[in-house]
């Protein structure tokens, strides 16, 4: 199925006292690939600022902007129109022996290493190894995703942006970011190169054309088992026309949607809204 989707993502900060200076980077522009066609993308800020665009090491489009007049709220609105389709099932498949080859270990080294969000954990690794038994690498990705889906309870607001895969697992609950990190920790434990994907999910499978729904900032994973392919452990579904991807990286830190530095007192995040409209 092919959809055309408009995404309007609003995020930002509110400050206790006026901020006179802030420097920010937004990673909010959907990418372009075989499954997804970016038709138009625009970034607007309030107060207005001139954005400087560049492509970072991971291939993500970054909008960088700075503000120099006093403001008590920063609002960032990223709007885009994308055409999406369903991801075909992965065609190439490698064996466990091939995944251990020097070539694969070298080429995908960054996607096999531990990070702050995706730390090594003995018990989790043992679970991952037991799930691998009798399965191919591809089947293992699905089995691990299902295990994560069944193990964590989806709980909005329970974990901050600073919690790791292990924190979420020990708490038994989390949001899509935690589902993704936990899946990565287990896949890397059994030697499957895997990466974090940030993006959006349209929440209504039977949406009518022209209907606007409340979407979500979302995260899922991609694994390399001969080629890169994605899976959504939060919902235990494959990647389809309702998924819009923005960035990939080793973990959340490589793709954080909005980060910056400002001078002033404490900031609170404003309510994030993602409006998604099916256009075709």
């Amino acid at each position: 199925m092919n959809w055309r989707l408009r995404v309007v993502h609003t995020t930002g900060y509110r400050y206790a006292t006026a901020v006179t200076q802030s420097y920010n980077e937004a990673r909010l522009t959907p990418r372009h690939d075989d499954r997804q066609n970016l038709m138009v993308a625009r970034l607007e800020t309030i107060p207005p600022a001139r954005a400087y665009k560049y492509t970072d090491y991971w291939g993500t489009e970054v909008n960088s902007f700075d503000l120099h007049s006093p403001h008590t709220e920063l609002k960032v609105i990223a709007a885009s129109v994308v055409e999406t389709s369903d991801q075909p099932p992965p065609s190439a498949e490698v064996t466990w022996v091939q995944l251990k080859s020097a070539d694969v270990l070298d080429t995908y080294a960054e996607y096999l290493e531990w990070t702050t969000y995706v730390p090594k954990h003995r018990e989790l690794s043992a679970v991952a190894r037991s799930l691998r038994r009798g399965r191919s690498p591809q089947e293992t990705v699905l089995a691990v995703s299902k295990w994560v889906h069944d193990t964590l309870k989806y709980q909005r607001g329970t974990t901050g942006v600073h919690s790791s895969a292990v924190d979420a697992w020990q708490a038994g609950e989390g949001v899509c970011q935690d589902y993704a990190h936990l899946t990565l920790a287990m896949l890397r434990a059994v030697g499957v190169p895997s990466r974090y994907v940030s993006g959006y999910l349209h929440t209504k499978p039977d949406a009518a054309v022209g209907e606007t729904v409340v979407g979500e900032s979302h995260a899922w994973v991609e694994a390399w088992t001969g080629e890169w392919w994605g899976f959504d452990p939060t919902n235990d579904i494959s990647i389809g026309h309702r998924h819009v991807w923005v960035a990939t990286g080793r973990d959340y830190a490589d793709v954080s949607p909005l980060k910056g530095i400002y001078s002033g007192e404490a900031a609170t995040a404003i309510e994030v809204t993602v409006d998604m409209t099916r256009l075709a």
């Binding site: 560049y54 492509t55 970072d56 090491y57 991971w58 270990l105 070298d106 080429t107 080294a109 960054e110 290493e113």
Partner: peptide, 18 residues
């Protein structure tokens, strides 16, 4: 050179790419 030689280097700063 192996890719890993570069990516594992503590002072390989991805921020400087490009």
């Amino acid at each position: 050179l192996p890719r890993r030689l570069i990516t594992s280097c503590e002072h390989f700063h991805r921020q400087a790419a490009g």
